[in-house]
Every structure is written in structure tokens, then in C-alpha cells.
């Protein structure tokens, strides 16, 4: 089995359709919606006319996101040599790779294995919730965001997966939990709350390990945080997640704090997300103006 696995090869059964984030963002319907009408993008609350569909779509997104989180955590258990594993070092050397840079602490790998189990439960939970909400496996295309989990540097991977991706999960679950509460769906609220507890743990693992592993290497830490910034921007989904009520998903400041984000880190994400929302609004206005001028020129 290869040490690093390309995101295009994540194995799925016949029900799934995968698209990359790049393809999704390049699709004009993402910005303008069907028939050129901008889809509702306000905070996901039960009073939204499309609430039931939007919640179901989001739940499917959670479901496939959990599969990818499971795969990412599993790959981290496998891809990197455990510090002190002399037999693997000898094998790597025989295969022409004698760098020690990819060796990670045994305890870090144990955390990743624990995360794999947690994510497996999240897949179980979200597949049942999806069913409960009337959804079907594969009815929505799967956005492959796992590039963040394919980094060959364990520290970048931690930053991209455990802080950026899992941080987004905290935001999504908080929004979904509130949705369950407002909609009078205690089953949904209950499950989201349990998953939220796990995600806070995962982000905390990422925060702690990032600090620990780069303790004496400020340059590497800087690089990792920059990478996280890039992934955070990607996950702002054109304004899908921000403090603004115009974003379907809010920024879960309190839970991010619990998970080891500093105040300034939370502020940075708030800023990037808001900028992404404004970019999207500008793009919509531009496209609408173009359409209007084309119509006027007829």
C-alpha cells in the first residue's frame, strides 16, 4: 500500500458522485443558482422557505465530510513513520527514503486512531440522521475537500485537517444543533451535540500537536499556520460560513475557544469568511448587472 494516497482515488461505491471544490466553485449555478436566481443563503433556520431541503443537503454534506475525515485520520495513522520504529525506518531506507522528517510521535498517531473511530461513528450518526430527514446516500454530489489531508508534511496535515476542516465541522454542527433546537427536533439536536463534543476534541488535538511538534521550529509553525489560512479560506465557501446572518453557517466562537483557537486566530477566520461573503455578493451583483445589460442590449 502506498504511503500517500491521491484524493482522486478515495474509494466509493456506485451511489456516490464526486466533484472537486474547484469544479463546484467554477459552476456558475454555485453563485447564481438555478435559472440565474441567487439561492437563499441566509442563516439556516427553520423559518427559511427552503429550510427542509437546505438542512437535508447540509446533512448529506456532513455525511460525506465525515467519510473524508475518517479517511484522513486513517491515512495519518499509516502514512507517517512512528518516531522510534526502527523496523519501518529500515524498510523506508531500503526503499530509498531515509529522511527522518516524516516521523511523528507515537502519541500523535494514537490520537489519530482515536479520531478514526470517532469519525466512523460520525458517519454512522449522519447516515442515520440523513435517513431520518428523508435523504438518500448519493443524492448530492460529494465535494472532495480532502486535498488538505494529502499533505506529505504531518504538521501541514494537522493544520489543514484538524484545525481548518474540523474547525469548520464545529461551525456546521453548532448551526445544525441550533437548527434542531429551533425546529423542535430533539433527535437532531441530541446527535449534533454529541458530534460537536468529539469535534472540539479533534480540533484541540490539532491545536496541541501543532504547538508541540513545532515547539523548536518557528519557521515550520509559520508555514503550517499559513497553510491552515489557505484551507480556512477555501472552507469559507464563498461566504457560506461567517459571523454574518447572511451566511448559512455561523462561526462557533465559543467552541473554537474550547478547542484551542486563540482570540486572534478566531478573528482572522472571521475576517477571511466575511471577505469571502463580500466577494460572493460582489460576484452576484456583477453577474446580475451583466445579465441586465445583455437584456437591455437586445
Amino acid at each position: 500500500m502506498r504511503k500517500f494516497f491521491p484524493v482522486e482515488e478515495l474509494a466509493r461505491d456506485g451511489r456516490f458522485n464526486q466533484i472537486t471544490m474547484k469544479d463546484r466553485m467554477a459552476d456558475p449555478r454555485t453563485v447564481l443558482g438555478k435559472d440565474g436566481v441567487r439561492p437563499s443563503s441566509n442563516r439556516l433556520v427553520p423559518s427559511r422557505p427552503d429550510a427542509s431541503t437546505a438542512a437535508r443537503v447540509l446533512m448529506h454534506g456532513i455525511f460525506v465530510g465525515e467519510i473524508q475525515a475518517l479517511e484522513g485520520a486513517g491515512r495519518t495513522c499509516h502514512d507517517f513513520r512512528t518516531a522510534g520504529d526502527q523496523a519501518r525506518r529500515a524498510q523506508d531506507a531500503a526503499a530509498g527514503d531515509d529522511s527522518g522528517a516524516d516521523a511523528v510521535p507515537f502519541a500523535l498517531k494514537l490520537d489519530m486512531a482515536r479520531q478514526a473511530w470517532d469519525e466512523a461513528r460520525h458517519v454512522e450518526i449522519s447516515v442515520k440522521l440523513s435517513d431520518w430527514m428523508g435523504g438518500e446516500i448519493g443524492e448530492i454530489a460529494e465535494n472532495t475537500v480532502l486535498q488538505a489531508a494529502c499533505s506529505t508534511d504531518p504538521v501541514l496535515r494537522l493544520a489543514g485537517v484538524n484545525r481548518a476542516l474540523e474547525g469548520l465541522a464545529i461551525d456546521v454542527f453548532t448551526t445544525m444543533k441550533e437548527f434542531g433546537d429551533l425546529a423542535g427536533d430533539p433527535f437532531l439536536e441530541f446527535c449534533e451535540d454529541w458530534m460537536l463534543a468529539d469535534e472540539v476534541t479533534h480540533v484541540k488535538m490539532g491545536s496541541d500537536w501543532l504547538r508541540k511538534v513545532t515547539e523548536n521550529d518557528p519557521e515550520r509553525r509559520k508555514k503550517a499556520l499559513e497553510f491552515q489560512g489557505i484551507v480556512d479560506k477555501l472552507f469559507s465557501y464563498g461566504g457560506t460560513r461567517s459571523d454574518s446572518e447572511e451566511s448559512p453557517i455561523g462561526l462557533a466562537r465559543r467552541f473554537r475557544e474550547l478547542a484551542g483557537f486563540t482570540d486572534s486566530e478566531v478573528e482572522d477566520i472571521a475576517e477571511v469568511s466575511l471577505a469571502a461573503l463580500n466577494e460572493r455578493k460582489d460576484a452576484v451583483a456583477r453577474l446580475q448587472a451583466e445579465a441586465a445589460s445583455q437584456f437591455a442590449g437586445r
Binding site: 482515488e9 491515512r75 495513522c77 499509516h78 498517531k109
Partner: peptide, 9 residues
């Protein structure tokens, strides 16, 4: 390690 690696495959 093997079980974790195989999840994606």
C-alpha cells in the same frame, strides 16, 4: 496503521 491506511481504499 494498516487498518487506518485501508479505510480510504
Amino acid at each position: 496503521e494498516a487498518l487506518g491506511g485501508w479505510v480510504a481504499t
